[in-house]
Simulated assay, not measured.
Amino acid sequence: MTEAIISALLPPTDAHSPDRLPSTSRPNLGRPPLAELASLLPNPATYYGMGSIDASGRIANRTVVKALGWRTGDRLEFQVAGGVIVARPVPHGLATMWHAPYVAIPAPIRHLCGLRSGDRVFVVAHPAHQNLIVYTTPVLDQLLHDHHASLLPGDAQ
């Protein structure tokens, strides 16, 4: 039964079949026009992504970090507020961007936020403000729980 339904939807492939359409009767539509991606993004844009933390604290999301334009050797400062990590370049930063476009969260910051190797984080780059914001999964869970609770009163559990 399934074969009969599927075969009814597919055009015949036999070159000698009377039901086969001649190849000249198929219109060549070409490629659809594509919008310029740069024109669709606000300037400067905010970039979002997910990444894993490796054993050295490196965030595995090059695209978001690359959007900031930071370079190898840039000095970075890390601050933590409410379990959210904020990194930004400063001349007196205690951490160094050792290989662009990778940011490694220093061990004391990872321990403070309960991050371990393999943990997933949500990263947000703000090129205009030159900062990278890192949200841990527990922080995201709480933010989304609170947001959903405000949208659906009584369904917060």
Rank of each mutant, 00 (worst) to 15 (best):
R88D: 01
M50P: 00
W70H: 11
T46M: 06
P101F: 09
L29Y: 11
V86M: 09
P44Y: 02
A149R: 10
L21C: 12
A95Q: 12
P106G: 11
C113W: 05
H126S: 10
R26H: 15
R62F: 03
I59A: 10
G57L: 02
G30F: 12
G30K: 10
E77D: 14
N61Q: 04
F122T: 06
L10M: 13
G73N: 01
A125H: 06
P108D: 10
S56W: 01
E77Y: 08
G82H: 14
S23K: 08
M50Q: 11
V121C: 06
G93W: 12
H99R: 15
A55I: 06
L34G: 01
G83P: 03
K66G: 12
G93Q: 11
P106E: 11
I85V: 13
V121M: 02
T136F: 00
P11D: 11
C113Q: 08
V90P: 01
A81I: 09
A35L: 13
S52G: 13
A4L: 07
I5C: 11
H129P: 00
S150F: 01
P108Q: 08
M1C: 07
Q79P: 00
T24M: 09
V139A: 04
E77W: 13
V123I: 14
A87G: 07
P44M: 01
S25E: 05
R110M: 12
T13Y: 04
P106L: 11
G57S: 08
R31S: 10
L68D: 06
R58A: 12
S7R: 15
D155W: 10
Q142R: 14
I85R: 03
A60M: 07
P32E: 02
R62S: 09
L34F: 09
R110S: 07
P101W: 09
P106F: 13
L41A: 12
R62C: 00
P101G: 11
L37K: 08
M50W: 14
D119P: 06
P91C: 05
I105L: 06
V90E: 09
P89C: 02
Y48V: 13
I105T: 04
L112D: 10
V65H: 08
A8Q: 11
M50H: 13
R62A: 15
V134N: 00
L68K: 02
H129Y: 05
L9Y: 15
T24K: 12
L37H: 03
P22V: 05
G154N: 07
A15I: 12
P27W: 00
T96S: 14
W70C: 10
L151G: 10
L115I: 07
Y47E: 11
T63P: 00
S39L: 00
K66H: 15
V124S: 01
M1G: 13
Q79R: 14
P44C: 10
L9N: 12
P32I: 04
N61T: 03
L10R: 14
S56F: 09
P153D: 03
R62V: 05
P138Q: 02
F122A: 00
P91L: 14
P138E: 05
M97Q: 04
T137S: 10
A125C: 07
H16K: 13
A67I: 00
I5K: 15
P42M: 09
I5H: 12
G51F: 01
A107C: 05
N61F: 00
V121S: 03
H129F: 04
A100R: 05
V124T: 02
L37P: 00
I85D: 03
A107E: 15
H148F: 14
I53A: 03
N61K: 00
